[in-house]
Simulated assay, not measured.
Amino acid sequence: MDMIRVEPRCRVIIDNDWAGDPDGLVALAHHALSPANRIVGVTSSLTNPMFGPPGGMAQRGADLAAGLLRVLKRPEVSDVQAGSDAPFTGQARDNAAAHAIVDAAAAGGELSLILVCAGPLTNVADALLLDPAVAHSLTLAWVGGAAANEEEYNYFTDPAAADFVLENQQLAVWQFPAETYRQVVAPVAELDHAFRNSGPAGAWLWELYNSLEVPDFVTFGPLWCLGDSAPLVVTGLDDVTSTFTETGTRPSRRTYTSVDTRLIMADFLAKLRLHQ
């Protein structure tokens, strides 16, 4: 018996520093398994130097994302485009990630287009500089920034890019700041059990998590933050159980203040188990 048919509600471009924290790849798997969103592009950005010398990391991330999409049997979207390994300079740069975003925005379609960025905004800034019309064609759902004055990772990996993008008054932005995305946590035991018992995709993610190279001083607790999955409430799911504040201006500027962690996690784990 087939499950109730879920109709697509949006198109998505997914941008992340895939070679950084592996929660981005969990979010990518969730998007790829969600019939409510239609992936039209995947791009890879630079990583913070805390993950090692940045040279080649955008391409390494692209290779990781492409490998996961192939395991998920999504070869049509596994051509992941890498951006620059250097932060945004304010000067036009010819890179594949920026072109992929521009092309997806220009392609049009009946469904709204959401650019999900859960890393530094480098590729988004490069795309807007390459073609300012991108701002009129999509909504940016960004995991990053913080209401409190703190050194939030995604912002401070490339603050020049973040400032350039967020200052664009033509761009609709739905922001998931640190205070919100850090609410999305899962017990390590639940992830371990799910990955071990969920077919090839689960095995791929289990191997990824169990082969992480971290400094000796890094220790892990019983919870793992999956903050990059927060935008699923506006792409593969629905934000009916989330809360946000919104300015009265157009284009839309939202700041999500809470997301339904159990909705996100239950949906992801069920889809992962069903994808055998």
Rank of each mutant, 00 (worst) to 15 (best):
M3Y: 14
D15N: 12
W18R: 01
W18F: 14
P22A: 09
D23K: 03
L25Q: 00
L28A: 03
A29Y: 03
A29T: 02
L33F: 06
G41S: 10
T43A: 07
M57D: 01
M57C: 09
Q59E: 15
R60Q: 14
G67L: 03
L68V: 04
L69P: 00
L69A: 00
D79T: 12
D103P: 07
A104R: 07
A105R: 04
A105S: 14
G108M: 12
L121H: 04
N123M: 01
V124L: 05
D126S: 08
P132H: 12
L138E: 03
L138T: 10
L138P: 06
L140A: 04
L140V: 03
V143A: 04
A146Y: 07
T157S: 14
T157D: 05
P159Q: 02
A162D: 05
F164T: 08
Q170P: 05
L171C: 08
P187A: 13
A194D: 03
G202N: 02
W206M: 06
V218A: 11
F220E: 14
L223H: 11
W224K: 11
C225N: 14
L226Q: 08
V233R: 05
T235K: 06
G236S: 08
G236A: 09
D238S: 13
T241F: 12
S242M: 09
S242G: 11
T243M: 12
T255D: 13
S258I: 08
L263Q: 15
L269K: 08
L272I: 00
